[in-house]
């Protein structure tokens, strides 16, 4: 079923795939993020309870949602690498990890900036905040473990195991709200039957989620390309590529 996927185990195929996808996703991400943010900041109505502070939602919720999805994407890459012994999968994993860490940081920071006016404190040891912090530690662990090994092949496998062990934590994050049920407000948009948020407020949020996802994908592809170049620098196709790039730049 997944046979068509296997060609991308070759670094060259993965590289050209990234090259083809990057312009599309970069365009989607730019378009959506600009539209969603402008709409959210300028045109969406104020919340009757939180006033204009609720506008932080347009960056906080996409970052918080996608920090978990990004972790899952990283873990899937690790699983593919461990099961099929793909080198590109491990490269993808380590390309995604810092992006995920950055997104998690954004979620934490915006959460703090939202919490200050709403709860009166920058940081509250609430279940979701804590879980998000654990997620940041998970990303840091994977990156630190990868960096600790000199042999990057070995490093990929070790960090892959760590990423998979951490997957146990993602459901804990997701269900922690129900389990510990504390200060943090419940999920607003995943209630499919009747969204608890006005459609005028919802649209920019959805657009920003798409934009953020496309942004994460684009940056991960860029970093994957870099990783491939770094690891394959002795291959003829990389040498050729670098030299043709140089020729292009000189024109």
């Amino acid at each position: 079923m997944f046979m068509w996927l296997h060609q991308y185990a070759k670094t060259e195929a993965a590289y050209s795939l990234c090259n083809r996808l990057i312009p599309w996703f970069a365009a989607i991400s730019m378009g959506c993020l600009v539209t969603g943010t402008v709409w959210g900041l300028l045109f969406a109505p104020s919340d009757y309870q939180q006033g204009d502070a609720f506008r932080i939602i347009y960056i906080h919720v996409p970052a918080a949602m996608l920090s978990m999805s990004t972790y899952i994407a990283m873990a899937v890459a690790a699983l593919v690498g461990l099961v099929w012994q793909w080198r590109t999968a491990f490269m993808a994993m380590i390309a995604i990890a810092p992006v995920g860490a950055a997104v998690t940081f954004i979620a934490l920071f915006t959460g703090a900036a939202w919490g200050k006016p709403m709860w009166g404190a920058w940081w509250v040891w609430d279940a979701r905040l804590t879980s998000e912090l654990i997620l940041l530690f998970l990303y840091c662990g994977v990156i630190a473990l990868y960096c600790a090994f000199d042999d990057k092949q070995q490093a990929g496998k070790a960090a892959g195991v760590m990423a998979l062990v951490g997957v146990v934590n993602v459901p804990v994050i997701h269900f922690s709200v129900q389990w510990w049920n504390t200060l943090h407000q419940g999920a607003t948009i995943t209630r499919l039957d009747k969204p608890a948020i006005a459609t005028q407020m919802l649209w920019p949020l959805l657009i920003n989620i798409v934009g953020m996802a496309a942004f994460i994908f684009t940056i991960s592809c860029v970093r994957l390309k870099n990783e491939i170049i770094r690891r394959e620098q002795r291959r003829p196709w990389v040498q050729q590529l670098v030299h043709s790039n140089e020729a292009k730049n000189e024109l």
Binding site: L135, F137, A144, L145, A148, V168
Partner: peptide, 17 residues
């Protein structure tokens, strides 16, 4: 175990769990 200067790394790995 194979990392010569592991140091705090195992603790960091265990922390989230």
């Amino acid at each position: 175990v194979g990392v010569p200067k592991g140091g705090l790394l195992p603790s960091l790995l265990m922390l989230p769990v």
